[in-house]
């Protein structure tokens, strides 16, 4: 598989109140393939959001290599090159209210393409396509403040899709939403990954979301401490508990059953799978 993002020995620190350097990321090595769905987990202050901001060059790393599609972007970039990086790697933030610029939904989605200097007719087309992808066509002429949190976040996603990115980073984009809104946004993210082949980097606290990805990367204290498929990462729940993280409820349940002597050797991460295994276990008894 083709590598889309390659990070080698990357370090980042910010300037503290007294001018001292406060290190945040230490020696990060991470490769992300084209079309992959990677979840980044970590407790508050672990550096996961910082890593996201470094990837699309909102923050500049101190040292190390950061390649996007083979091109090293940690080196000096011209404004045009910087714009090109941000077009290819879009970012959706936590608070939907603080990302929307215009007072009309479709005007807001057009904001990105307008900045890129795309001809009017094509912007119109892209906006319609993006609205369609996130399932918000009926709201094209609405004002953002009339929408629910989940709907606003889908508009924010549409605003990024309209720039035709190859990768989208979601920085805790579901953290402020209610369960329904969270479901809407997660479904949209999955759809983008499956149908459009867009590489997804999702930063989250929510374990039920993390199991949806191809790979989980766990960050703690600015270092990558664990990575693998959701099944592998959740196989030993206590390792995650030690890092201040949780595991999906169903995984925890199976772990407890295993401790009580049930014959459940494999870890379980989705509820469907769990229900099936439990049913089979009960049948054999």
């Amino acid at each position: 598989m083709k590598k889309f993002i390659e990070i080698k020995n990357l370090n980042f620190s910010y300037e503290g109140d007294e001018g001292e350097r406060v290190p945040v990321l230490h020696d990060i090595n991470l490769d992300i393939n084209k079309g992959e769905f990677v979840t980044i987990l970590g407790r508050n202050g672990s550096g996961k959001s910082t890593l996201a901001k470094v990837i699309n060059m909102i923050l500049t790393p101190d040292s190390g290599e950061l390649r996007i599609d083979g091109k090293n972007i940690a080196a000096e970039l011209t404004d045009e090159e910087l714009m090109a990086v941000r077009r290819r790697v879009g970012m959706v933030f936590q608070n939907p209210d603080n990302q929307l610029v215009a007072t009309i939904v479709e005007e807001d989605i057009a904001f990105g393409p307008e900045n890129l200097g795309i001809p009017s007719a094509e912007i119109r087309q892209r906006v319609d396509d993006a609205l369609d992808t996130v399932g918000m066509k009926a709201f094209a002429r609405h004002s953002p403040h009339q929408l629910s949190g989940g709907q606003k976040q889908r508009i924010a996603i549409a605003g990024i899709i309209a720039m035709l990115p190859e990768c989208i980073i979601f920085d805790e984009s579901t953290a402020m939403l209610d369960p329904k809104g969270r479901q809407e946004v997660m479904d949209t993210i999955e759809k983008l990954n499956r149908e459009k082949g867009i590489t997804i980097i999702a930063i989250t606290h929510n374990m039920e979301e993390a199991v949806r990805g191809d790979r989980i990367v766990v960050i703690d204290g600015g270092r990558i401490v664990k990575q693998g498929t959701p099944k592998d990462v959740f196989a030993k729940p206590y390792e995650l508990w030690e890092l201040g993280l949780a595991v999906p409820q169903v995984t925890e349940l199976f772990d407890m059953l295993r401790c009580l002597g049930a014959d459940l050797p494999e870890s379980v991460i989705t509820e469907e799978e769990g229900a099936e295994k439990l049913a089979r276990l009960l049948e054999t008894k």
């Binding site: 941000r86 970012m91 603080n98 990302q99 479709e106 900045n115 009017s120 912007i123 990024i160 720039m163």
Partner: peptide, 18 residues
């Protein structure tokens, strides 16, 4: 920050949808 991520760089070279 969000505007920067959406390639905002002032009015220069900007087109409009409508």
């Amino acid at each position: 920050t969000a505007m920067e991520c959406r390639c905002y760089h002032g009015g220069e070279g900007r087109t409009r949808m409508t």
